[in-house]
Simulated scan of single mutants.
Amino acid sequence: MTGPAKRDVVFLLADAGMEQMLLGFLGRPRFHLSLGCAPFAFDPREDVFVAQTRDPGVYGTAREFLRPFERTHRRAVVMLDADWVGTPGADAIHKHITRCLTEAWAEFAVVVIDPELEAWIWQDNPQVAQALKCPPDFRRILADARLWPLDAAKPPRPKEALEHLRRPPYRADGSRAAFRRLAERISVRHCEDAAFNLLRDTLRTWFPENS
Score class of each variant (00 low, 15 high):
Cys191Phe: 04
Val188Ser: 05
Arg28Thr: 07
Thr72Leu: 11
Val48Ser: 10
Trp148Gln: 12
Ala51Trp: 10
Asp114Lys: 11
Gly57Asp: 03
Lys6Ser: 07
Ala109Cys: 13
Phe11Arg: 00
Leu66Glu: 04
Arg7Phe: 08
Arg54Gln: 06
Leu165Asp: 10
Thr202Met: 05
Thr102Ala: 04
Arg176Ser: 06
Val50Tyr: 10
Arg200Thr: 15
Leu33Glu: 15
Pro155His: 06
Ala145Arg: 07
Arg71Ile: 09
Trp120Met: 06
Leu117Ile: 11
Asp15Leu: 13
Phe65Met: 12
Met18Thr: 13
Phe179Tyr: 01
Ala143Phe: 09
Ile186Gln: 08
Arg67Gly: 02
Ala161Asp: 07
Pro39Gly: 03
Gly36Trp: 03
Ala38Arg: 12
Pro68Cys: 03
Val78His: 12
Gly174Lys: 01
Trp148Ile: 09
Met21Phe: 10
Lys6Glu: 01
Asp47His: 02
Gly60Tyr: 04
Phe42Ala: 08
Thr72Asn: 10
Leu66Ser: 13
Arg63Lys: 15
Pro4Arg: 14
Lys95Val: 15
Leu101Glu: 01
Trp206Asn: 03
Met1Gln: 07
Val9Phe: 08
Gln52Gly: 08
Met79Gln: 05
Cys134Asp: 03
Met1Ile: 11
Asp151Gln: 08
Tyr170Gln: 14
Cys37Val: 11
Ala145Glu: 14
Trp148Cys: 14
Ala129Arg: 05
Cys134Met: 13
Ala41Asn: 15
Trp120Glu: 10
Ser187Phe: 11
Asp47Gln: 00
Met18Glu: 15
Trp84Lys: 08
Arg171Glu: 10
Leu26His: 00
Leu165His: 15
Phe207Gly: 02
Cys37Ile: 12
Cys37Tyr: 02
Ala5Lys: 13
Val110Trp: 04
Trp206Phe: 06
Val110Phe: 05
Phe40Ile: 02
Thr61Lys: 05
Val10Thr: 12
Gln123Ser: 14
Thr61Gln: 10
His32Ala: 14
Ala14Arg: 10
Gln130Ala: 05
Asp83His: 12
Gln20Cys: 03
Val188Cys: 09
Ile93Arg: 06
Thr98Trp: 04
Tyr59His: 11
Leu203Thr: 05
Arg28Phe: 02
Arg171Ile: 03
Arg45Ile: 01
Trp122Arg: 11
Ala161Met: 13
Ala183Arg: 06
Tyr59Cys: 06
Pro88Asp: 12
Phe40Gln: 02
Ile141Leu: 15
Thr87Lys: 09
Pro156Asp: 08
Pro149Thr: 05
Thr87Leu: 11
Phe25Arg: 09
Leu182Lys: 07
